[in-house]
């Protein structure tokens, strides 16, 4: 995508953002549709460009993938490679996920108790 088209897109999106403060009307509906169309077009263009699904020459099939698949049992002792990844190689992320759950509980309970 060209630089000029990016700038034009950004300006258009920003302009339609400002028009959101208009009361609900046909004009606003049209602007929303135009904006969604632009975003949709950009996303489709991105997906069309992505590497083929499941092809072996894809960028994610690099040394990390090799290591995870072939050495996981040796490194962690887990037969299930996914368990090896989420609870050993990237265990800190899992700690984060557990914390997200805890945060959600804390948020929900504090709100329920407060009101």
């Amino acid at each position: 995508m060209e630089v000029n088209s990016l700038t034009a897109m950004a300006i258009l999106v920003l302009a339609s953002y400002i028009f959101f403060y208009l009361p609900a009307s046909r004009l606003r509906g049209v602007l929303v549709l135009i904006m969604l169309g632009i975003i949709g077009y950009a996303l489709v263009a991105t997906v069309a460009e992505m590497p083929t699904f499941g092809a072996s020459a894809n960028p994610p099939h690099n040394e990390v993938y090799q290591r995870y698949l072939h050495q996981a049992v040796e490194d962690t002792g887990a037969i299930n490679a996914i368990a090896a990844i989420i609870t050993d190689y990237r265990a800190f992320d899992t700690l984060g996920e557990v914390t997200v759950l805890f945060t959600a509980i804390a948020a929900a309970l504090s709100n329920l108790k407060a009101h």
């Binding site: 002792g77 887990a78 368990a83 090896a84 609870t87 050993d88 265990a91 557990v98 759950l101 805890f102």
Partner: peptide, 18 residues
């Protein structure tokens, strides 16, 4: 698989009670 077993159990407790 060492700590992985323990981690799974801890997460299981946490998620279930949540």
């Amino acid at each position: 698989s060492g700590a992985i077993f323990f981690f799974s159990v801890a997460i299981g407790f946490k998620v279930g009670s949540t």
